[in-house]
Design a protein around this nucleic acid. Structure first.
Length: 486
DNA sequence: CTACGGCTAAACAAGC
DNA sequence: TGCTTGTTTAGCCGTA
């Protein structure tokens, strides 16, 4: 054990990082008291989203960190959703997960079914939708000191993805392969006085951390989407049925066709999302390094800030109600990279008729009994500001020699692997080639701006998707009522 | 068809 | 000596 891995943590779990995060996790759903606490956290989370936006006005920020914080917070839903349906036990079945983890209570009729569906169909038999790079990234980020030995990376992956427990052992080779080959990961010099034994500690190279975050963002967790699972035959379904549907990984061809951006978070994600803000599986998507921004950044920021500032005074703006009565245990969210893409996704997913009023955002806080959509005005200039900027910029993906820039708005390609290093000099040793690649100048403001605009569109997509989901819900409920009358 | 990312398998060396 | 760790290469597959 090294200085970063206290022996006590090692004794608790093969994954020290996960253990650390589990200790502070609120109960998933256990009784009224827990529900009340979760509601408070849910309200807190919603406020945090608003607060993240408002930082653009409250502070004289010189970077786009506020924007990334906002998007990251939204994306944290997906990761916390992943955690919420993570296995109840370690792969060997001998180490029941801490009750403080976000696993749903088996007593819950809905959550239990959903959870079982994940455990059996997805957790144990399905390969996780994350690349090894993302898995390693999450494992390291989940560690208290952001560094882990290979052994603990194995443990983290095993703990969170039981698929690998029965998978051929080659996955460990792949992990090591990734660690060695991927420039995002770098070894940390061990403290000789506190040797951890063989091997080194691995950490995230800050230079490439953002790339990993982007890669992770493009692997949304999409567990319960019957429409996506059976796009051609399944009728529009009520959100309640999401929780009984087979999981759909991003590896699904259909999901990828949709841009890999649609995600729906299972029940209880609010609790987990709130947990993300304090101590969570993956709580440390930090802001980008501070860097000067240009006027276009300010334009987008001011647009969003204007939207928020007016929204704060607007009665129609969503804000958590006092007591958050509607923030119950059932929450359904979706995100999309852009409203247009979302619409196509929705059509393909569920044959759901599209609505034109994308400028109205309905945040559905779905309770077990009745959904109460809340409408939020989405000023079109938010989306158009980002769209206008992006439209005048070449896609980042065009940096790729192949020119296949589709879906690379936020940098889906991973330009930090050996292929890129090879471009430096094939005659140099790999490590030196990596070092040479690292020395390349950081992303320009334009790159940052395009990414920021993409994030902005992403946010807009989230809101538009919420709207579509709500509309679909409302229509579904209406149709259901009519069917009952008949 | 091509380029690329990602994965897997394998070989090899070094350390414990 | 056996296992683990780390590096490297090669090949395959899916996607754009």
């Amino acid at each position: 054990m090294g200085p970063t891995m206290p022996p006590s943590k090692k004794a608790q779990s093969p994954s020290s990082g996960a253990s650390a995060s589990q200790g502070m996790s609120p109960p998933y759903r256990q009784g009224d008291a827990a529900t009340a606490a979760s509601e408070a956290e849910a309200a807190d989370l919603s406020l945090s989203l608003s607060a993240s936006f408002s930082k653009a006005e409250d502070e004289e920020l010189t970077s786009l960190s506020w924007l990334h914080e906002s998007t990251d917070l939204l994306n944290s839903f997906s990761h916390s959703g992943l955690r919420s349906v993570s296995p109840l036990q370690d792969p060997d079945g001998q180490h029941p997960r801490s009750p403080s983890s976000s696993s749903p209570s088996p007593d819950d009729p809905l959550l239990g079914d959903a959870h079982s569906a994940y455990d059996l169909a997805a957790g144990a038999n399905r390969k996780p939708p994350y690349s090894f790079s993302c898995l390693i990234f999450m494992a390291i980020e989940d560690a208290p000191n952001k560094r882990l030995p290979v052994k603990d990376i194995y443990g983290w992956i095993l703990e969170h993805f039981p698929y690998f427990a029965n998978a051929p052992t080659g996955w460990k080779n792949s992990v090591r392969h990734n660690l060695s080959l991927n420039k995002c990961f770098k070894k940390v010099d061990k403290d000789r006085s506190q040797s951890i034994g063989k091997g080194s500690l691995w950490s995230i190279d800050p230079e490439y951390r953002h790339n990993l975050i982007q890669a992770l963002k493009k692997t949304p967790y999409h567990p319960y989407s019957p429409g996506l699972a059976t796009p051609s035959t399944s009728p529009p379904t009520l959100p309640q049925t999401f929780h009984h549907s087979p999981p759909l990984w991003s590896g699904s061809p259909l999901f990828r066709k949709n841009g890999g951006v649609l995600l729906q978070v299972p029940r209880g994600v609010i609790q987990n999302g709130a947990r993300v803000r304090s101590q969570a599986l993956f709580p440390v998507i930090r802001p980008l390094p501070v860097s000067p921004v240009g006027s276009r950044t300010s334009a987008i920021r001011s647009s969003l800030g204007d939207y928020l500032s007016r929204g704060q005074d607007s009665p129609s703006r969503y804000s958590p109600p006092p007591g958050s009565e509607d923030l119950q245990d059932d929450h359904t969210y979706s995100t999309a990279k852009s409203p247009s893409r979302l619409c196509s996704s929705q059509v393909a997913a569920s044959s759901c008729p599209l609505d034109d009023d994308d400028d109205i955002i309905a945040v559905e806080i779905q309770s077990d009994v009745k959904a109460e959509p809340r409408e939020i005005p989405l000023d079109s200039h938010i989306t158009t500001a980002a769209t206008a900027y992006i439209s005048q910029q070449p896609l980042r993906g065009q940096r790729r020699s192949s020119g296949s820039g589709a879906g690379t708005l936020a940098g889906s390609s991973l330009p930090w692997t050996k292929n890129r290093a090879k471009g430096i000099s094939d005659t140099l040793p790999l490590k030196k080639r990596r070092a040479a690649a690292v020395e390349k100048p950081p992303e320009s403001d334009d790159e940052e701006m395009k990414e920021a605009a993409g994030s902005l569109l992403h946010l807009a997509g989230v809101r538009a998707c919420l709207n579509n989901i709500t509309n679909r819900t409302a229509k579904g409920q209406k149709e259901q009522k009519e069917a009952l009358r008949n």
